[in-house]
Amino acid sequence: MTISVLIADDHPIVRDGLRGIFTGRGFEVVGEAANGAEAVALAERLRPDVVLMDLRMPGTDGVAAIAELARLGNPARVLVLTTYDTDSDVLPAIEAGATGYLLKDAPREDLFRAVEAAARGEAVLSPAVASRLLGRIREPAREPLSQRELEVLTLVARGSTNKEAAKKLFISEATVKTHLIHVYAKLGVKDRAAAVAVAFERGLLGS
């Protein structure tokens, strides 16, 4: 059975290369799109089995296109093919409805197998992406800091001792220590310096 493929990538040379490797191998490239909006329009008209979707394209990007295809109920399976494997790229694409996620440095045989699997509705993830997603699943949920915990941490970041923080917040020194213990647990750290550093990193404290 021939698998119909739509290629969505803003680089003509990439589209040409993909068309070349897929032609005559049990696949039929039925169309090419240079951005997400074109990909959605062509997928609606051509009804391909699989859409090979780049993520970063001008105008409508890949994630927006994936979400739109899902909203429209388009039956095409979307296989992301990109050079990016950061959390900010991988997670939105998977959440939007992508069937798989491969990197452009994947061997062509892996790409063929991935498209075949995607056409069957099977999830396909490159090893790097799979381990990244597993890491996020295993990572404990981050419980937000309470307003009082943020106030204590802000004073600590400004150099206040527990005693000084207690005086400024009109609470006991023991209460300040309790708040800090909770802060350490929520941020996954063991001391004041690390708590302040992580809080800045996460944007919890002003610069």
Score class of each variant (00 low, 15 high):
G24T: 00
S146F: 10
L42S: 08
A123W: 07
F200R: 15
S131V: 09
H182V: 04
L79Y: 01
L81C: 13
R192D: 01
H182Y: 12
V51L: 12
E109T: 13
K167P: 15
A96P: 08
T178Q: 15
A117I: 00
G97M: 07
K163A: 09
K167H: 14
E109M: 12
R56Y: 13
L150R: 15
D49E: 00
V50Q: 12
K168M: 12
H11A: 06
R132S: 07
G17C: 04
R56S: 14
V198G: 02
L145M: 05
R19T: 08
L125M: 11
L150W: 02
A39F: 04
E151I: 06
D49I: 06
L46E: 12
F200E: 05
V129C: 06
R192A: 00
E173N: 08
V5I: 14
L79T: 00
T86K: 00
K190C: 11
R19Q: 13
G135M: 00
L134H: 11
T99Q: 14
A195P: 01
R56V: 15
V156D: 10
G97D: 09
L155W: 07
R25K: 12
I21L: 06
L6R: 07
V183Q: 05
A39K: 06
D49M: 03
A199L: 13
I21C: 03
F112H: 10
E149Y: 03
L103R: 05
M53N: 09
N162G: 10
R108P: 15
D89M: 09
S172R: 00
D110R: 12
H11K: 04
A141N: 06
R47M: 07
